[in-house]
Design a protein around this nucleic acid. Structure first.
Length: 280
DNA sequence: AAGCCAACCTGGACGC
DNA sequence: TGCGTCCAGGTTGGCT
């Protein structure tokens, strides 16, 4: 059961950010096409038009799995959910189904937000509204940045929850999803079922390093897919398929270290995969 | 009060 | 071939 669709986690979102930057920063939005649709946070066509037509994009930023398209007057806040994609296309290219929002840029290309499963977010805010946004304001530190290890140790020390659930808590570390959390635990030799409080700080240090390692590898792989110029798919050939998955989706297969059969358990409503002998 | 779980939604995989 | 059923994921809100 390998992932049949790439669900965007930190490396994928960061790859999208990098790929969009040259197409957006310094350019003006000249038009909006949008349909009113219920996503996790619904798209309001009028608000996108009012806030974004005519503005010049100054930056594309990432916070956890959120993307921010910034200008002086307005901020477009995106979350790709499970199936969301942001792609840059020529106007004559056919629009795929489930395209909910299109930003027409002054250079003639279009930024299209596509999200079949509609777990995503695409809202036009005033810059001042950002700090009130519940999803954004609750985010913990970036796993690749300062304070990640410290925050993980602190959160784990006071939690009886399984470590996999702690890793998926965006308030502890912002940007991990099930696949990279699962793989980082495998690399660190920690069972996803182990309670946070029952893990020694030194092992949490190893876990922090494993998280950085797996995210770094995925990021590097995603980055290489950007160098081909041309028009950018939100998520190219990189992502999960470029990172060697030790356990995710490998129930019943032999562990590459010890040969034991990989197990799958549902933890917090999500599949956790692990080697019962290498991960304790 | 922390932790668990259902709900949201669609398309792909699988079984009959 | 075609239909039905199940399942994946991120996040929130409700329940205990």
């Amino acid at each position: 059961m390998l992932p049949y669709a790439v669900v965007p986690e930190l490396p994928e979102v960061e790859t999208v950010r990098r790929s969009l930057t040259p197409h957006l920063v310094g350019h003006r939005v000249v038009g909006i096409r949008a349909r009113r649709i219920r996503l996790r946070e619904g798209i309001e066509p009028a608000s996108w038009r009012r806030r974004f037509v005519g503005v010049r994009v100054t930056a594309v930023e990432r916070r956890g799995k959120y993307l921010l398209v910034r200008s002086e007057r307005a901020v477009g806040l995106f979350h790709l959910g499970m199936s969301g994609r942001l792609v840059v296309r020529r106007p004559e290219e056919p629009q795929e189904t489930h395209t909910h929002l299109v930003l027409c840029m002054d250079h003639g290309l279009e930024l299209r937000f596509v999200d079949p499963r509609r777990f995503g977010v695409a809202v036009a805010l005033r810059p001042g509204e950002l700090r009130e946004h519940p999803g954004l304001s609750a985010l913990g530190p970036d796993p690749l940045g300062e304070g990640a290890g410290q925050n993980l140790v602190r959160a784990a020390a006071r939690s009886r929850a399984p470590i996999r659930s702690i890793l998926l808590d965006q308030g502890v570390l912002a940007g991990l999803g099930n696949i990279y959390a699962t793989e980082a635990l495998a690399r660190a030799g920690i069972s996803p079922l182990r309670r946070g409080r029952a893990i020694a700080p030194a092992r949490l240090g190893a876990l922090t390093r494993a998280i950085r390692e797996v995210l770094g590898e995925a990021l590097e792989a995603g980055g290489t897919t950007l160098s081909d110029g041309g028009f950018v798919n939100a998520i190219g050939g990189g992502g999960y398929f470029a990172v060697k998955l030790l356990v995710y989706g490998r129930e019943g297969e032999p562990c590459q270290t010890c040969g034991s059969a990989i197990r799958r358990r549902v933890v917090g409503g999500r599949s956790a995969f692990y080697c019962p002998s290498c991960q304790r």
